[in-house]
Design a protein around this nucleic acid. Structure first.
Lengths: 173, 173
DNA sequence: CATTCTTTTCAGTAATTATTGAAAAGATGA
DNA sequence: TCATCTTTTCAATAATTACTGAAAAGAATG
């Protein structure tokens, strides 16, 4: 399949960005291809279009399906499995943020809680070290609670929340 | 220098997390050591304590200073440069978020704008592809504007904003 | 300004992570 | 059940990134 210039640019860009997002180049490229092509594509066509190994595509698709941002569809008259990207950009970034929080924030919160409990049971550090630990824990607890709140809002409310940033600003004083 | 169990745990944890944050293990460990030790430490002592090369510590400190989360101080009667972590956790994560936005969001916003302009000048893609491009651009524009708003608030307002999440939830309906 | 202590640079090496391709496993239809 | 098409697994290899250590450069002291 020949990509249009737009799709090609997006594939290239997401591939580069993927590295910075902790997503492998191939996974990011496969996602970009599916998302901007906006129709179901079979795995071998993805491999051919992106010039990467068929087996690699297979792994990328597993990962993207695992995250729930790509789904498998069957097209009548074709034995092969086709794949398409979900078309909701809010849902897409929700998945990415959830994943990041799970990998980056949750383990740290756990570690901070454990350390804090230990320190409380038997203080062994300077007051300033203790203060920094509890400040750090408090920060993570606050962010965790906030994310939980926002996460529970329906998408519509989140859109309003984001769009209303300037109003909130004056409202908070 | 012998680390207390608390500092040791934090150093180990931040080292592991660093990888997921796109920060090298050493940089993250040096930061954890300075932050939780909470007093100025000279580079050679950092190297010895963490068991990493002196030259590596030098590079890590350059990076941390470049981000503004570690600063150089001189202690009377000691020729060596000492380093300490800034003690404001909000400022610390502000720096990390700014850095992430700069590396991950800004280039994508730029690419999306360029693609969008090209497509507008000479449409070459399916209506659905065009729709996905503009939806993606709109999303990034919205987030960019929102981040700018929040970023401009004084820290105090941000704390209130985060703490008021549940109130905002009902306020938005 | 020479000695000594300290920091930085950088080429080489190590460690990690991503990708390939061949072979095995799984599925479909005659 | 066999032949064929498709997907997955996994050991080998490639690419990337992080780290070291020796040597050079820079600073402070007498």
């Amino acid at each position: 399949m020949k990509m249009t210039p737009l799709v090609e640019q997006m594939v290239r860009h997401w591939g580069e960005m993927g590295a910075r997002w902790g997503i492998s180049r191939s996974v990011a490229q496969v996602h970009a291809l599916l998302h901007f092509t906006a129709r179901p594509v079979p795995a071998d066509e993805i491999a051919e279009t992106l010039g990467i190994a068929r087996s690699n595509v297979s792994g990328c698709l597993k990962e993207l399906q695992g995250w729930g941002v790509v789904r498998l569809v069957h097209l009548p008259g074709d034995r092969r499995e086709h794949f398409e990207s979900i078309n909701d950009v809010w849902r897409l970034f929700e998945v990415l943020l959830d994943e990041r929080k799970r990998r980056e924030v949750d383990p740290t919160l756990k570690a901070l809680r454990e350390c804090s409990a230990q320190e409380e049971a038997a203080p062994k550090d300077s007051p300033e070290t203790q203060r920094r630990l509890s400040e750090m824990l408090e920060f993570f607890e606050m962010m965790d609670a906030w994310y939980g709140e926002v996460r529970r809002m329906p998408i519509q409310s989140r859109v309003r929340l984001v769009k209303a940033a300037n109003r909130i600003r004056s409202w908070l004083g």
